[in-house]
């Protein structure tokens, strides 16, 4: 009886393995530090463990470990990008991107920017930016 149970359990494990084995592997966690890496050549931004709260739309914007297309050059002090949920966000950094900025602000989405650029600017935590 025990052998049967063990055999049955092994069958379940095999079935489960077959079912989930085909799934796309997920990228491994890349550490606890938050960072944004800018690839000027590809015009891309790679975020690691990066999130901020969108005060005006009442939602947490989570940009953990993903790559986002960016417009512009490395001379800019603003990064505007479209997140995975197809919303636009802009963050402002304290120095041009080529000068290794180490501090950033979140600026709200385009609609609020039209009317409330100054008032809706929120300083968030000091972040590390590399690239």
């Amino acid at each position: 009886m025990k052998k049967k149970r063990v055999a049955l359990l092994m069958c379940f494990v095999l079935v489960l393995g077959c079912l989930t084995g085909c799934a796309e592997p997920r990228p491994s966690y890349q550490g606890t530090g938050r960072s944004i890496a800018i690839n000027g050549y590809k015009s891309e931004m790679t975020t690691v463990n990066f999130r901020f709260y969108d005060y005006h739309n009442y939602r947490l914007v989570n940009l953990s470990n993903d790559t986002y297309p960016l417009p512009g050059s490395l001379n800019t002090t603003e990064i505007t990008f479209i997140d995975n949920d197809l919303n636009e966000y802009t963050i402002r950094v304290n120095r041009p991107l080529h000068d290794a900025p180490d501090c950033l602000w979140y600026i709200c989405t385009v609609r609020e920017r039209m009317e409330r650029t100054q008032t809706c600017m929120k300083r968030i935590k000091r972040e590390n930016i590399s690239g």
Partner: peptide, 17 residues
């Protein structure tokens, strides 16, 4: 909406655009 967004991107980086 996209005209406004892109105008901001362009104006922020005039040397590039």
């Amino acid at each position: 909406m996209q005209m406004l967004s892109y105008r901001r991107v362009v104006d922020n980086d005039p040397g590039y655009y």
